[in-house]
């Protein structure tokens, strides 16, 4: 038993240097499609099963715009003759249209997060579980996970908002002290993802509580989740939900 600290030390430091340093380890993010100027915009857009790609025409030039809030990482636009370029970044957190300003400085080194699962498939759950694992070590950033809404500054919700979780989400939100922020994680939380709106799912967190930050991705990798949380306290530059060619 007493050997455990030693076994831990043996592995050495595995924690990423990000956000202070760069991070480009292979496989740390699946990446995502980039907007592109192309003559095949219509074809490319038609091949996306979720209408996340749109053919647009600006100043006489055609291209494909990406709406990340609908992208489910099906990878169909990644291969083949008309493949789009894919970025290898993970700075995906984007303010919602109704976003409140970033939390003030006293939260930047002490932020408490309450995670609520509202129908997330195991992938989002698994990624969120890794944010406080050694490779990512959330605690070093002064962000902590709490199990009670009374302590929480941020409500982090994943999944397409199932019917039976509506009440739990609004109750949790109501029980949180002000100031508070809400982050919807994964494409499901934004518009319902592949599940959409149905008899069983609200298809979007905004229908239940006000949302400040969207984190697209299916699933967003751990660093993207951390990017989202840091965006809420203004420690990193947020991204946008859409990209124009």
């Amino acid at each position: 038993m007493s050997f455990w600290p030693y076994y831990g030390l043996q592995r050495g430091i595995t924690t990423t240097a990000w956000p202070d340093g760069a991070e480009d380890s292979a496989g740390i993010t699946p990446g995502r499609p980039c907007a592109l100027q192309t003559g095949h915009a219509e074809e490319i857009a038609a091949a996306c099963p979720t209408q996340a790609l749109k053919a647009v025409s600006q100043a006489g030039r055609d291209g494909v715009a990406v709406d990340f809030s609908h992208c489910i990482h099906c990878q169909r636009c990644r291969h083949g003759d008309n493949a789009l370029p894919w970025s290898t970044d993970f700075s995906w957190g984007a303010p919602s249209a109704a976003a409140r300003p970033a939390l003030e400085s006293r939260f930047t080194r002490s932020l408490q997060v309450l995670y609520v699962d509202a129908g997330a498939c195991g992938a989002c759950v698994n990624e969120v579980r890794l944010i406080d694992a050694p490779p990512y070590n959330l605690h070093r950033l002064g962000i902590f996970v709490t199990a009670t809404p009374r302590d929480a500054d941020v409500l982090l919700v994943a999944g397409p908002i199932t019917d039976a979780m509506r009440t739990a989400i609004s109750k949790a939100y109501a029980a949180m002290p002000e100031p508070k922020r809400v982050m919807g994680m994964g494409t499901c939380a934004i518009h319902g993802g592949v599940f959409g709106e149905s008899f069983a799912c609200a298809g979007g967190l905004e229908k239940i509580v006000p949302v400040d930050l969207w984190l697209p991705g299916c699933p967003p990798p751990p660093l993207a989740i951390i990017h989202g949380l840091l965006s809420l306290v203004g420690r990193v530059t947020p991204a946008a939900l859409e990209e124009q060619p």
Binding site: T162, M165, A168, F195, S198, F199, A200
Partner: peptide, 11 residues
Amino acid sequence: LFYKYRGVEKI
């Protein structure tokens, strides 16, 4: 259970 029922078979 079934707090996470998304009605996948139906949809």
